[in-house]
Amino acid sequence: MKQAFVLGAGMGERLRPLTEQLPKPLVPVFHRPLITYAFEHLHAVGVDRLVVNTHHLPDAYAQAFPDQRYRGTPIQFRHESPVRLETAGGIANVRDLLGNEPFLVYNGDILTDLPLKPLLTEHREKGNIVTLVLRSHGPSLHIAFDPRRGRVTDIRNKLGTGDEGKYLFTGIYACDPAIHDWITPGKVESVIPIFLNMIREGAKIGAVVIDEGSWWDLGSRTAYLAAHSALNGLYGPAIDPTAQIEDGAVLRGINVVGAGAVIESGAQLEDTIVWPGGRVVRGAQLKRCIVRGSISAAGIVEDADF
Rank of each mutant, 00 (worst) to 15 (best):
M1Q: 03
K2I: 15
A4L: 05
F5G: 01
G12L: 10
P17S: 08
Q21H: 14
L22A: 02
P23A: 04
P28V: 13
V29L: 13
P33D: 08
P33W: 08
H41Y: 12
H41T: 15
H43T: 01
V45M: 09
G46N: 09
V52M: 06
H55S: 10
H55G: 07
H56F: 11
D59E: 14
Y61R: 10
Y61S: 14
A62M: 04
Q63N: 09
F65E: 10
Y70L: 02
R71D: 11
P74L: 00
R78Y: 07
R78C: 15
P82W: 09
P82M: 13
R84L: 10
E86C: 06
A88I: 03
G90K: 04
G90W: 06
N100G: 13
P102M: 02
I110P: 03
L114W: 02
P118L: 12
L119S: 03
L119N: 12
T121W: 09
R124N: 11
E125L: 00
G127W: 01
V130T: 12
T131S: 10
P147N: 01
R149K: 08
R151K: 15
V152Y: 05
K158R: 14
K158S: 11
L159K: 07
D163F: 06
D163G: 03
K166D: 08
L168W: 04
F169K: 14
T170G: 07
G171R: 01
Y173G: 12
A174I: 02
A178M: 13
I179A: 04
H180K: 02
H180E: 06
I183M: 10
G186D: 05
V188G: 12
F195A: 07
I199N: 10
I199P: 12
G202W: 09
G202F: 00
A207F: 03
I210H: 07
I210L: 00
S214R: 01
W216H: 09
W216V: 13
D217Y: 03
L218G: 03
G219A: 05
R221M: 12
H228D: 00
S229I: 01
A230E: 15
A230W: 08
G233C: 12
G236W: 10
P237S: 08
A238L: 09
D240F: 12
P241K: 03
E246G: 01
E246V: 08
D247G: 15
G248I: 11
R252M: 15
R252V: 14
G253W: 14
N255Y: 14
V256C: 15
V257Q: 02
E264Q: 12
Q268C: 13
D271I: 08
T272H: 07
V274P: 03
G277P: 13
G278L: 12
V280T: 13
V281D: 01
G283Y: 04
Q285F: 05
K287D: 11
I290R: 09
R292Q: 09
